[in-house]
Simulated scan of single mutants.
Amino acid sequence: MSRDEIIAAIDEEISRLEKVRALLEGSGSSRFLTGALTTGRKKRHLSADARRRIAEAQKRRWAKQKKQAVPVANPAK
């Protein structure tokens, strides 16, 4: 490869990288990074009642798990 060919290849690579950077920095970057381009779905929202029911169910699971936990003996005493 001659010196001119190497410089031309470097210039092409710089141009390609600048285009990629512009895409990532531009308005399309958030859609690209969140995956909205691949799924095409809108974000779903839960109602307050649904969030409350989920929270209550999780608290019941935590209470059940805590009840089943075996107390650890304290070896220091």
Rank of each mutant, 00 (worst) to 15 (best):
D11I: 05
I7L: 13
R61M: 06
K42E: 14
K67A: 15
S2P: 05
K77I: 10
A73V: 14
K42F: 08
E25Q: 14
K66D: 10
E56D: 10
S2W: 02
T34E: 04
W62A: 12
P71N: 01
V70R: 10
R41N: 13
G40S: 01
G26H: 01
A9P: 02
K42Y: 06
K77S: 12
S30R: 12
R52E: 13
I14L: 11
D4G: 15
K67R: 14
L23H: 12
A48R: 07
S29M: 09
G40I: 00
E25T: 14
S15N: 15
P75G: 01
E13T: 07
Q58P: 00
E5D: 12
K64S: 12
K67G: 04
P71V: 04
R60S: 10
E12L: 06
R3G: 07
K43L: 09
K77Q: 08
R51V: 10
A50T: 14
K59P: 00
G28A: 14
I6W: 10
P75M: 00
Q58I: 12
G28E: 15
S15F: 11
L33H: 08
K59A: 14
R16M: 06
S30A: 15
K43D: 12
R61T: 08
W62F: 11
K66Y: 04
A55Y: 05
A9F: 01
S47P: 02
S30V: 15
T34A: 03
M1G: 15
D49R: 08
A57K: 05
G26E: 02
